[in-house]
Design a protein around this nucleic acid. Structure first.
Lengths: 116, 116
DNA sequence: TTGTTATTCAACCCTTTGCTTGATCAACTA
DNA sequence: TAGTTGATCAAGCAAAGGGTTGAATAACAA
């Protein structure tokens, strides 16, 4: 609990990155293809510097990568990183569904006992 | 951009709630069944008040619900809420995969042209 | 009633976030 | 070369997050 393992830190940053509507809109935009900082900033009422920081948060979380095209630094979505998040969530969703199935079978056996 | 729609606010809180390792461990514990605040606090080196706050964050995010049993307030995982998060993520993952498929078919047609 | 257990409220502290503006850097264009 | 465009750095500020301790509340047990 003193220090956090690297996998945990990655999840921290990734979930934190998605906990902001501006950053989620950026992800949404990037799902339709790469874009530059200026293009990404255009729809928002905040400064380009603020958007640049949001992109750095997404990059540090491993959710996007960047390339270079002259002065531009196009941003690309990394879909594999999103997959890691659904994997984490689904781990606990599945356990929960298994419990439902166990409950179902328990109820099933109770019913058959009652009906015998 | 001035005001956020309710669905966005829910996603904010849910992703934010999962961006903390203590809260993720609480989710993990709850996936094995309901637990009281004291039970949930036991593994951690922080005060019960701090854990109580974490649980309130999870509750406000709609990820857990609470019942009553005398002085105890058992916490239950709400798996449906987790599903809403994977749904959001998968929305963009799928778009991305469709683009890959489009690229694949493009490359395929180029190859067949070359091979003809 | 008195005491104990389970949980929350309240006030406070420190660190981090998200934003701003102004300056700087890097790479193109005239 | 000088000017412009694209993006980042830096300093500062208000608000929020996660933690603490001590007091309060609620429901049970003696």
């Amino acid at each position: 609990m003193i220090d956090e393992n690297p996998a945990d830190a990655r999840l921290d940053r990734a979930f934190m990155a998605l906990a902001d509507p501006v950053r989620r809109e950026i992800i949404a935009r990037l799902s339709r293809g790469p874009a530059t900082v200026n293009e990404l900033a255009e729809p928002f009422d905040i400064s380009k510097q603020a958007v640049s920081k949001h992109i750095q948060v997404l990059e540090h979380a491993g959710l996007v990568t960047r390339s270079r095209d002259a002065q531009r630094r196009p941003v690309h979505l990394d879909a594999a990183a999103l997959e890691a998040l659904t994997a984490w969530i689904d781990g606990y969703r599945l356990i929960h569904e298994q419990q439902f199935r166990r409950l179902d079978s328990l109820l099933g056996s109770l019913t058959s006992t009652t009906e015998s």
